[in-house]
Design a protein around this nucleic acid. Sequence first.
DNA 1: TAACAAGATGTTACCGGTAACAGCGCCCTT
DNA 2: AAGGGCGCTGTTACCGGTAACATCTTGTTA
Lengths: 343, 343
Amino acid sequence: MSDETPQVGRRATLTDVARAAGVSRQTASRVARGGENVNARTAARVRRAIKALGYRPDPIARALSTGRGRIVGLLTHQLTHQRTGLGAVSIMIGVEQAATELGLGVSIATFASFDRGTVQDAVDRLARAGCDGVIFMAPWVSAAKTLRAVEATLPMVATSEVPEYDGLAVHADAAKAAGDVVDHLVSLGHTTVHHVGGPPDWTSSRLRLLGWENALRRTGAEVPEPLIGDWTARSGYEAGLRLADDPSVTAIFAANDEMALGVIYALIERGRHVPEDVSVAGYDDAPGSDYLRPPLTTIKVDDAEHGRQAVAQLILRLNGEPPLPSAVVPHELIIRASTAPHE
Amino acid sequence: MSDETPQVGRRATLTDVARAAGVSRQTASRVARGGENVNARTAARVRRAIKALGYRPDPIARALSTGRGRIVGLLTHQLTHQRTGLGAVSIMIGVEQAATELGLGVSIATFASFDRGTVQDAVDRLARAGCDGVIFMAPWVSAAKTLRAVEATLPMVATSEVPEYDGLAVHADAAKAAGDVVDHLVSLGHTTVHHVGGPPDWTSSRLRLLGWENALRRTGAEVPEPLIGDWTARSGYEAGLRLADDPSVTAIFAANDEMALGVIYALIERGRHVPEDVSVAGYDDAPGSDYLRPPLTTIKVDDAEHGRQAVAQLILRLNGEPPLPSAVVPHELIIRASTAPHE
DNA sequence: TAACAAGATGTTACCGGTAACAGCGCCCTT
DNA sequence: AAGGGCGCTGTTACCGGTAACATCTTGTTA
């Protein structure tokens, strides 16, 4: 094994390359980055040396020198339940895929509570870690101030719509999706649709509720008082108990699949059949929702694509280019057996 | 606003602190790190300057200088379904919590397929990003070689047991957990327990199957041929169809909740009641499994704790200290209505 | 043919830390 | 009183890159 075998011993540096190619470090650096203003013959020689030595630039040194780390920060919270969990991990994977494709690293920071200080700590960690920009999974409604504070620290893209915040955000059109669910149920002959919403301080709750309400209004249907859950099946169950004994309830839209599960449980427990007596729809297309009894009508969003689009927007932002106008993640209404014609 | 207001303008550096305190940069550095061999009075002066200027060390510069990045790498794959998805995100959160507590950053890299090259690329990315060590979520059986390759690049802790790999790993005792399920079913009067396993190249499949088999053997029960699924509810459904018509089947243990869902769907479709005719148990305690009909008996593992323990082991490893012997994540059998006495 | 622009390369300094070593004062030995 | 060790502090160099500027060729133009 010769001294120059790649991967053995100390990693090759630019200085090694320069020496091997008989040029200055600076010239080697120029070639390594793309070779502007370098003679073709020289460049070829340097490239040969790079290959022979297995040289790869050290991102840390580069970051120190340029002040830019070529790292995307991922800021997310620690709730582990369904809504956040599975969607979040898919978004993360999308982010990582897109970032890697662009040669960027990904650092993560999480926060346990939604208050300003905690979040700011997390952003600071990312900033100090050399992140050039942040993708912020900020799911709660009153995040506007926090978002502005984060944006002041680092360029940012949010992964949800946030009221009173007009910075960059990539998101699915949750209100439209909720409207699709309502339209579907109305078209099945239901005169109105009841709603079991998520916690009011969550953006997704708010938008799903809004979309539900607007769609009902649009069709001229009565808008019943919504019930509020906390995303868990148990809270869905409790809401379901309250709806089960009201014979005018024939269609229920739960803001996520888990709560839909609880709703169905309660309905059945009270002797009402799904979907014969009551149609139930969810949101998220959680794994397994196709083999519930009955299989659940729900909304599916491509979360990985969500993550990829967020990175795309962030990169444009970092390069000072105008954002893509099309940054809305597509959704799809998946109709299954939990919703059926009324009467 | 004075020049010294923290957070305004350029971040304070060690040089700024040194100048403000009237000492050399080196002394300032010593104090910033803990103040060995520094006069108490001097140290106090430096600390005051640090506070006044809002100085915080730059991890990048430190990493360049020391060669250690104070970053934990998180290596995981891109499958988004249940088993990986939700468990993975919880482990990640645990990792991030523990790392943050220790003042470490977290970088992630994902890989799309299990082949050596792809995984090695991902580790390399982490290595170049300044990670000191890696937590590797390597869920497949034949990973031993890959693990050794990763370990050769960076100190590593795996989050699953891997056959023929004797490096550090933190994991739940999946075989024991599977045994607990079987024991529970046997104690209910079932003469044997059928199994719907996950893909054979997954460690968790293998261990759950092994634990199931051993427990049956131990109790002297017959060991029926296991059926193999792919973690999805659909595959559980298909397995369920094959078991449904065999009257000797009275208890089924599925290797995850999603497949259990499919199994139950098939059984009911074929007119067999759960749990009256057939008991079904799953694994994972997926959100909502408490409001399935019937609520699902399953195994719950504290994934966040899993992540925390992995970090703890990694840190010991990095410091050259002996690993904790107790690195087994506890699990819990959760008994619900999907399992019932036989006869 | 002198002047000058553009291309190619090298030199120097710097990013913000840390390590290694040198120097200085002081107290304690002997 | 000289020597030695210790506590504290400063100096210098280095980590692996990049930016800014200087220098030296060329080829082009007036």
